[in-house]
Write a protein that binds this DNA or RNA. Structure first.
Lengths: 150, 150
DNA sequence: CACAAACATATTGTGCGCAATTGAATCATG
DNA sequence: CATGATTCAATTGCGCACAATATGTTTGTG
């Protein structure tokens, strides 16, 4: 082993990558019963938190996703009848996304998903919170590194 | 807020998802200079640790990826001249993956990537290790949940 | 007011991830 | 030793992610 820093199990990136995919996959299994994917669920989470429509860019800031991902995703949510998209009359560059009645009605069914998962993952609330805080810190430092490169 | 468990910033899954993508993206930027993607780099990490060829399935166990992801990825690495694939004569169902000279030569250039990233992320070795341990625990519990469902 | 720069979203192209299916090789059981 | 079950890799189909580009809108400057 000439380069110990290249060991798969010694790098932070791999458990982060693998655990992220594993958790996303579990969500996906539960969400498929609602006809949703995990990123679609995240977009709805952001919309459920607000009473006002949201611009695509604001949704992107919240989810850390760009229009290349969000545009087709929102088109699928619109086709599914869960959201509506329309140009912002105040600024025709923007597109506002708002929930339909069906989109709002989905919240109640979705509320069971994180509850049933939280218990399945065998973590206490405290553990989950600590891990979450560390990941937010990591996210912040990676983002400032990325913006410093640009 | 009728369902507090649906708040984006209160769920573990979101920072895990966002931090995972952010870290993968940073790796991708550095790896693009080597003509590699992040999952391709992971596959090479696993191969560099061994002197013997590896079956596709063993590579999948190490990276937690299935043949649907690995088959086309390995085909691209083969096209790039970094690996060779051949049927295992002992068991013709298996395909063995082995490094070419060019694949082995890539290790030296790749060794700089985690080193330069480790310093950029502003974490101590200890912090990275603790976070890594927690993520492996989470990965384990998600995987046992998944296998219990099957 | 003209018009260049900046901005917001959409589109294109490539490479994952993953569920489901396919096809070939091996194993296990009678 | 036959044959049904299992295993392994590849393929198919769909939905992300993300870089790069395109298109239309607004803003800032002279």
């Amino acid at each position: 082993m000439s380069y110990p820093q290249l060991r798969l199990d010694q790098q932070l990136c791999f458990p982060l990558y693998a655990a992220g995919r594993a958790v996303t996959r579990v969500y996906g299994l539960l969400l498929s019963e609602l006809g949703l994917t995990y990123p679609q669920y995240l977009a709805l989470l952001a919309l459920w938190e607000r009473t006002e429509p949201m611009a695509v860019g604001d949704l992107g800031s919240a989810l850390k996703l760009d229009s290349g991902t969000l545009s087709p995703l929102l088109k699928r949510l619109e086709t599914a009848g869960l959201v509506l998209r329309r140009r912002d009359p105040q600024d025709e560059r923007r597109v506002l996304v708002e929930l339909t009645d069906a989109g709002r009605a989905m919240e109640e069914r979705a509320a069971r998903v994180p509850t049933s998962l939280g218990s399945a993952l065998g973590m206490t609330q405290t553990q989950a919170r600590e891990l979450s805080d560390q990941l937010y810190e990591l996210l912040d430092s990676v983002e400032s590194y990325l913006s410093a490169q640009a």
